[in-house]
Design a protein around this nucleic acid. Structure first.
Lengths: 242, 242
DNA sequence: CGAATCGTTGAGGTCGCTCAATCATAGTGG
DNA sequence: CCACTATGATTGAGCGACCTCAACGATTCG
């Protein structure tokens, strides 16, 4: 794939026009990706190695596990997203990271990351922007879990994923490939998997979505957005770089 | 107050030893604080001016308001914390910010912030560290709201606030001054104010804390931490700079 | 003293949980 | 090819955590 067409560069370019030196740098950075299986833990909370990753292909998630085993997924990552960037300066990981599907990842050391931020103005700023954006997404999840009920909350997450995938060119007309199990959705939504199932039934019966294997088909995005009171501005994804 | 004794510098110095140029810079940056009333909105979600602030004294919070008026507080800020740093590169604010108590704040423009990050290695890195730390706190809140029940969740927040205040030298033995109403606590915890009240009653009746006006007295921090399964490592606050 | 704000308590309802069972699908080894 | 197993989806029954509504008490402040 041309570097310009990769999800990461599409995303970063929406924020700022990258220079050719940025492109060259990224091309090198992404040139030797590692392939990993699905459901492989990449980072364990509490450890203190300090690489982060760029996810080139596949899905991942970051999460916390409470002492009694309850799990909360903080966020999902898709192609073009960073893994672990949020806490790359902490002395030890505050969360774990795992793949959801088989994936390709490129490690980025803390040193490299600091180099990018300090010495590559455009790319560095774009990277910091993605940090801000990821944070905005987490904050929205917090609002969702704290203040929305299961139905709107679930709808909200589905729309978010659809929009994020669209942003990097990975959804098709009306819906997207979603590899998440109801268990994983539950852990992200603060619900039991069983209740996720019931919510999905409602969304199905009321004609909002249908599910065919891994594929989630959204029948009427506008109506679904109304149901979830979805306001996309937190994703900060607009067509053109400023 | 000597600049070395300000909460901000105490906090940053725990991460890295700041140079005298950093100190001078901060001294200038903090030299003309603005005084604002309590419950004053500083930033409204959706707007796009781009200053952030350093909170010198008082409490603040950042929050989101859903269309129907439900509110979710994302995090509280105390002396030495940044306001709005998390999303200073987004095109429009993804959340609102307001004071909780009367406060002193020093504005920091986006330009200044980028200058610090790009051109002042130690201070810049320390600032990025606080971003990571703030994010870790938000992630912990997410886990709390998603996966802990009201009692442990409330206890967890109280301990967090106590620890954060201790970190910047603002708590006294056994407890801290807490200006939050039960309404505000509810909005932070994803609970109704009424339920916060009932939870506090339980914490009182079971001998964990007592409340005297604005003051929250923690009787047995160790027992309270056990109740909340509190693991402080997410706060990344240790005594010495590395 | 009246108004406003905040805290407290009760009654009753509901959203989402747990437990348990069943079904569907895919992979695996004999 | 076919039991066998593992994983995930689905559904029902019953329960409990937390909510809403309503009322009242305490404190502060103009």
């Amino acid at each position: 794939m041309q570097i310009e067409q990769t999800p990461l560069v599409r995303k970063l370019s929406s924020f700022t026009r990258l220079g050719s030196n940025d492109m060259t740098y990224l091309e090198r950075l992404l040139s030797h990706p590692r392939t990993v299986h699905g459901h492989k833990e990449l980072v364990r909370e509490g450890t203190s190695d300090h690489d982060c990753y760029i996810l080139l292909r596949g899905w991942a998630c970051c999460y916390k596990v409470l002492r009694d085993g309850r799990r909360q997924i903080i966020n999902f990552q898709v192609s073009g997203d960073f893994l672990g960037l949020r806490s790359f300066l902490l002395r030890s990981w505050d969360h774990s990271i795992a793949t959801v599907t088989p994936a390709e990842i490129s490690p980025v050391s803390q040193r490299e990351m600091l180099h990018i931020i300090h010495d590559m103005p455009r790319l560095g700023r774009a990277v910091l922007w993605t940090v801000s954006r990821d944070e905005a997404i987490v904050a929205e999840h917090l609002a969702s879990i704290g203040r929305r009920r299961a139905l709107e909350r679930t709808a909200h997450l589905l729309i978010e994923l659809e929009e994020r995938l669209k942003f990097v060119g990975l959804n098709s007309e009306k819906g997207f490939e979603c590899p998440l199990t109801q268990d994983e959705l539950g852990d992200a939504l603060g619900l039991s998997a069983i209740h996720v199932n019931r919510v999905f039934r409602q969304l199905r019966e009321r004609g909002f979505v249908s599910v065919a294997g891994r594929r989630i088909v959204v029948h009427d995005l506008k109506r679904l957005k109304a149901l979830a009171a979805f306001d996309e501005h937190y994703l900060d994804q607009v067509a053109k770089p400023r």
